[in-house]
Design a protein around this nucleic acid. Structure first.
Lengths: 166, 166
DNA sequence: TTGCTCCTCACGTCACGTGAGGTGGC
DNA sequence: TTGCTCCTCACGTCACGTGAGGTGGC
């Protein structure tokens, strides 16, 4: 319950000084929500992977839902794909680029060949990531096939005993 | 070619002084074969995960094929399942135990209830590992589904342009 | 003897963990 | 003011990477 307490102090949004009153979380609350430590959030920031959406006048970090989504993405790329933070930085830069492209894409009067080029860039990055994932899946499938074979052997040995004892 | 050069020096097999003349590899050759560094092999030994099958009189490590298989298993558990070396140590101990059980299992006159107990132990360990693997698979599947959705969106955007331009 | 590989320290790195000591807002 | 959370160093840890300096067998 205490972890949902939003910032009650004045918040200075750096960059975009928008008036949206989305609930911003303190680092403790954000870490709890994201399932990471405060240290990790500070470390990701040190490496430039995330920047809290706002800072209080006292210099305290405030995190938005978008920040939490980004942290979740970092953790997913770490645990599911086994990427290191430098590789993750690359993936995030790509995904940020895609978001930019989408914005650019909306602009009127952008020539079709430029749109095509932007989309092509997105597609290349996405397909590259997909190959990494596929390799992981294949390795896991091979592992589970081997493991299942072991399990079958154990079970049949148990059945033999049961049959012999009956 | 140089990495297949077996030990030409006298080899002292600690423990079992068997006369089998299986080709034993130096640490450099073994590391190259296993796709790891010499440092990793020494570190795994430091942690008790592997012990080279033999040492030369001069104190040089000699690795058997079984040693290489064990290293491959360590790497698989690291990269595919994302386990740390302490967890891997546990899995390896379990698998060594299963090998022991198989040996014990062969002994004549072992009562059936003891055999059943040993098999039960194996099965529990194998099923536990399987649950870990399943969780990994599910995470990967979710990841790839999401990624594919993105790819589809990019492709349909490209088709729209092509249609508009045609 | 010359080359190459091996040996053991031992310090560096990555992704944090874990206090130390101090500040800030209800 | 008291509690709690936040802040920034800064050292520790895990799984190695990377030399430093020396030994060993063809």
């Amino acid at each position: 319950m205490t972890d949902v307490a939003p910032a009650r102090t004045a918040v200075v949004a750096p960059g975009v000084a928008d008036g949206s009153c989305e609930a911003l979380l303190s680092i403790g609350a954000a870490a709890a929500r994201a399932g990471v430590t405060e240290r990790s959030l500070r470390y990701y920031q040190e490496l430039g992977l995330i920047v809290p959406s706002a800072l209080t006048k006292g210099g305290m970090r405030r995190y938005s839902q978008a920040d939490l989504d980004r942290v979740a993405r970092i953790r997913e790329l770490q645990t599911v794909l086994g990427l290191n933070l430098e590789e993750i930085s690359g993936v995030l830069r790509n995904e940020d680029r895609i978001a930019e492209i989408k914005a650019e894409y909306q602009t009127e009067g952008l020539p079709d060949d430029q749109r095509r080029h932007l989309l092509d860039e997105c597609l290349t990055l996405a397909l590259e990531l997909r190959r990494t994932v596929e390799a992981k899946q294949e390795a896991l499938n091979a592992f589970v096939i081997d493991l299942d074979a072991r399990i079958v052997r154990i079970r049949s040995a148990m059945n033999e005993i049961a049959g012999g004892a009956a």
